[in-house]
Design a protein around this nucleic acid. Structure first.
Length: 913
RNA sequence: AGGCACGUAGCUCAGUGGUAGAGCACCACCUUGACACGGUGGGGGUCGGCGGUUCAAUCCCGCCCGUGCCUACCA
């Protein structure tokens, strides 16, 4: 019996389409939909709708066990947007959307990391200014962005407060750009939970953290050699240092030995530090130098007497096997300086220049002060590089010799390449400078830190090893003070004694009730503002915290630690920390450290590490290489879902090429879903259960897909879930099942209402389930199709709060008689298609007759679904041939005779309308 | 120098102790009643190399080569 198709008598709006009667499946009129999916319109519409309906709002009333908490990485807003952002943030969003559909209340905040040097640097360039903290605040100061013309002029000096104001100005703009991108790619962030690392609450919590660490005696301040960036003029932590290979040269320099005419030759790459030499050392077993231990060496040029001692740390093979110890050339110098209680001769100042000093004094002894001062006059105020050049020239003069045996430079410098420590954001090598800094004691907690790391699930697991290795190799306590401006102030003052000298041993730490506090403008409890910098009064600590000191508290910032105990108990520890692998040693490490020190807990249960985005030449994208791909044009070209498809195709931890082909595949998938959805929802029939054999076999295969995808998500393998779902959708569903079932749905094969109803019910179930499987990956197209019928039918307006597919979806469908019947149908269908391709006829061509060849077992398994396959293949007559030589599941088509030309079945649907 | 990861079709990547997979690209065909932003079919690989374990190794083990990252080396 012919049926009206498509049904046209209904309301023209798909969303409000109604069933004819209760016993018919709700269907839509596809003609009311655009020919092609209008992605930009859908992105705008659904973005607004999700926001309006609060789909992603955290439900604070649900218990912790039903809540999934994300410790979102706050992006550095001063950086530029690139596709890497899409990759890692989409990974998180996919996992989150899956958890939401599993029924969890999601806490998914967004933070902006605006605090710190990147922002300061951007402000310096953008406005062509520098901060001079000595200047007073100028409330009327109006500064416009630099035009480029000013580049040659010296930068304008502004006060600390004015500088901070400018920092807020640029970050506010940057945050808008990020939020736009996040919304466009459909991050299901709860936009009511937003913070900035410089805002009042973050400053409050960071300062609270300091107070807690102070109470627990985990922090201390010390005047100690610290890695120092001479351009930014700030201390730097171990985690922010990186090695860079640089050309250098070994300089062989002869020293004298006091009370003797002999000498020895040290090798150094830092000859300019000769004036800062405080000792000489060699390996205790080195026969060449054994006789020198305990005696006094005399440096050339400066004639300084320094002790010669033995140390196991010396490598006999390196250089000449004997070396000078300076304050300070490297970390080993610091160790020798401490262990041997050597003198401190700090010459390189905070600006990287040699400080003026007087030789012949107690601090700078010399056996020939006049010669030493004459030589040092050549170096004073020079930069490290300038001093190196000059000192080498001076050492070529035989008069500089400490023992009268000729020029101290005994050989031409030998060029080498060695690695030199840099601040990761810096341009000149770090110097070790003795300054007063605050530290968090971590070295004595290595084992506890390693143990906490082992309690966390790392995805992929190998990233946990990286954390462990870093932690075990930790060399220094965490230096948390920075001599910068745009950061969280250290909430400390120092009392001044009667002579105006600060007492660093008894800092005045702020009280909790004062937080957040800026000691530069507020006075400590018990003091008046008038006592600032007065003898007997107080002086503020002018420093700010390392940005990681705040960033390491993101789980606590989300949970309002210290401010709201109930909320904290619901949100801490978090479930998921997504991040990239290069900041395991910083962000992950410090966050675990804070969690250990504050609560003796882990900060989160899972860490998901995303890889990097590589350019087509497999190089990491970075601004300096100029190979950054900006995300917005990609979103325009391939849609947000298409870009998400690319992201989600990459497994956690593996680096990914920004391959436009993959974006294209994603867009194609979106289009296919649109078309398949439109088609399936246009089918209608009387409502009948899924009873037909092929339908049950197909649903059985679908159920298996759901199990596999769910299991993949449980293993944090979203890429596997996507690949499985996509393969099933494309191959099992659209290419096979839909092609076969549509004829029965239209009544062209089979014929009973029950058979039609079973086909329509199966198509709809498949679409319903597949949409939900795709929803975490492709939120826009899945929501779009969901809205056409399922939203109403299931009483769930958004697919993103619909339940993840599972048992309940399949309970009503009985298992097929033959478990692999759907696979048999697919294989046979493929064989018939191949026969048509071989015969160069269209897939729609009727087949007058053919023989299906397979082994007996396979033919038996095909039997229950054979009629559907033959119908869909438009085969009029067939014979079955048993051939035992064929493998199970293999089909051959023989003796195919095609009809002369394609004919349409009678009762063409449109002809009746 | 150590650690970790990777090496599979031209490209991007899955995968498994039992006859090698997908998508893209390529070639041929189909001329479209969901979809040409489509469909069908095809060609194409000693699974980096050499050994070992095994009835059987792309997979497990060892060594080597190559690539990337992390860490160390800084006298």
């Amino acid at each position: 019996m012919a049926r009206r198709w498509p049904p046209r008598e209904r309301d023209a709006t798909p969303g409000s389409a109604m069933a004819d009667a209760l016993e018919r499946f709700l269907s839509i009129d596809p003609d009311t939909l655009p020919k092609h999916f209008d992605a930009p319109a859908a992105e705008a519409r659904w973005g607004a709708e999700w926001e309006r309906a609060g789909v992603y709002r955290w439900d604070a009333s649900r218990p912790r066990s039903e809540t999934f908490v994300v410790d979102t990485p706050p992006p550095t807003v001063s950086g530029s947007l690139h596709v890497g952002h899409i990759l890692s943030y989409t990974h998180t969003d996919v996992l989150v959307r899956h958890q939401r559909m599993r029924g969890k209340s999601i806490f998914y905040p967004m933070g902006w990391d605006d605090n710190g040097l990147p922002t300061e640097r951007r402000v310096q360039n953008h406005f062509h200014v520098r901060c001079d903290p000595r200047l007073p605040f100028d409330p009327a100061l109006a500064i416009e962005p630099a035009t480029g013309k000013q580049d040659k002029e010296p930068p304008r000096q502004v006060s600390r407060a004015n500088f901070i104001e400018l920092c807020h100005r640029v970050t506010a703009e940057d945050e808008k750009a990020f939020e736009q991108l996040w919304r466009r790619i459909g991050l299901s962030v709860d936009w009511t939970q937003v913070y900035a690392t410089i805002d009042d609450r973050c400053r409050h919590i960071a300062q609270l953290s300091f107070l807690d660490l102070w109470r627990k005696q985990h922090v201390y301040n010390a005047d100690a050699p610290t890695m120092w960036d001479i351009d930014f003029q700030t201390a730097v932590a171990q985690a922010e240092m990186e090695d860079r290979p640089k050309p250098g040269a070994f300089h062989r320099i002869e020293f004298g030995v006091e009370g003797s005419a002999e000498g020895f030759v040290i090798a150094t790459t830092r000859p300019e530090l000769l004036a800062a030499c405080v000792g000489v050392t060699a390996h205790p077993d080195d026969a060449r130098y054994k006789h020198l231990f305990g005696r006094t060496a005399v440096t050339p040029l400066f004639r300084a007497p320094v002790p010669i001692f033995a140390s196991e740390l010396v490598d006999r093979e390196k250089g000449t096997g004997i070396l000078m110890v300076c304050t300070f050339g490297d970390a080993t110098d610091v160790r020798w300086w401490r262990e041997e209680r050597l003198a401190l001769r700090q010459l390189v100042g905070r600006d990287g220049r040699f400080a003026p000093v007087e030789f012949g004094s107690e601090a700078f002894p010399s056996r020939d002060a006049a010669a030493a001062n004459a030589a040092y006059a050549e170096l004073s105020r020079k930069s490290v590089n300038q001093a190196r050049t000059r000192v080498v020239e001076l050492l070529r003069d035989p008069a500089a010799s400490a023992n009268g045996r000729g020029a101290p430079l005994v050989a031409e410098p030998e060029p080498i390449e060695h690695s030199v420590k840099f601040y990761e954001k810096g341009d000149r090598p770090l110097e070790l400078v003795s300054t007063r800094q605050w530290f968090v004691r971590l070295l004595d907690k290595k084992q506890a830190l390693v143990d906490k790391g082992a309690q966390i699930s790392w995805h992929p697991e190998s990233m946990g090893i990286r954390y462990r290795d870093w932690t075990q190799n930790l060399q220094l306590d965490w230096c948390i003070s920075r001599q910068r401006f745009f950061g969280v102030p250290i909430p400390v003052w120092y009392p001044l004694d009667a002579s105006g000298q600060p007492d660093y041993a008894r800092p005045l730490v702020a009280e909790e009730a004062q937080l957040p506090v800026d000691p530069m403008t507020a006075a400590p409890r018990g003091y008046e503002e008038s006592q600032r910098d007065q003898p007997g009064g107080f002086t503020p600590d002018a420093d700010v915290f390392d940005t990681w000191f705040t960033s390491s508290l993101t789980p606590q910032i989300g949970s309002h630690w210290g401010l709201d105990a109930e909320r904290h108990s619901k949100l801490y520890p978090a479930d998921l920390r997504p991040q990239s692998h290069e900041i395991i040693r910083t962000w992950a490490f410090y966050t675990i450290a804070k969690s250990l020190l504050h609560e003796n807990d882990v900060p989160w249960r899972h860490v998901a590490i995303s890889g990097w985005v590589l350019d087509p030449d497999r190089k990491k994208m970075s601004k300096s290489k100029g190979n950054v791909v900006t995300p917005l044009p990609l979103l325009d070209r391939y849609t947000a879902d298409g870009a998400r498809y690319w992201s989600a195709s990459a497994r956690l931890g593996s680096d990914t090429a920004a391959d436009e082909q993959v974006f294209k595949v994603g867009k194609r998938l979106v289009t296919k879903l649109f078309n398949a959805g439109k088609f399936v929802l246009a089918q209608t029939a009387e409502v009948h259960p899924i009873s037909h054999e092929l339908d049950r076999a197909f649903v059985f295969a679908l159920k298996d897909l759901v199990a596999r995808a769910t299991e993949a998500f449980d293993r944090f393998n979203h890429a596997q879930a996507l690949a499985d779902t996509e393969t099933f959708f494309w191959s099992a569903f659209t290419d096979t099942y839909l092609e076969i079932a549509k004829l029965r749905a239209r009544g062209e094969i089979g014929g009973s209402e029950a058979e039609r109803g079973s086909a329509v019910a199966s198509l709809r179930l498949a679409l319903d389930v597949l949409l939900r499987l795709f929803a975490p990956f492709l939120p826009y197209i899945s929501e779009e199709i969901w809205s056409w019928a399922f939203a109403q039918e299931r009483g769930q307006p958004t697919i993103h709060r619909a339940p993840w597919p599972g048992e309940a979806d399949f309970r009503a469908v009985a298992a097929p008689r033959v478990a692999g019947a759907f696979e048999r149908a697919s294989e046979c269908w493929r064989a018939i298609n191949k026969a048509k391709a071989d015969g160069a006829v269209s897939m729609g061509r009727e087949v007058a007759s053919l023989a299906i060849v397979a082994n007996a077992k396979t033919l038996a398994e095909l039997a229950p679904v054979l009629a559907d396959v033959l119908g869909a293949g438009r085969c009029r007559a067939h014979t079955l041939r048993e051939r035992s030589s064929l493998a199970d599941g293999a089909f051959l088509i023989e003796d195919a005779v095609f009809a002369e030309r394609e004919t349409r079945p009678e009762g063409d649907v449109d002809s009746e309308v």
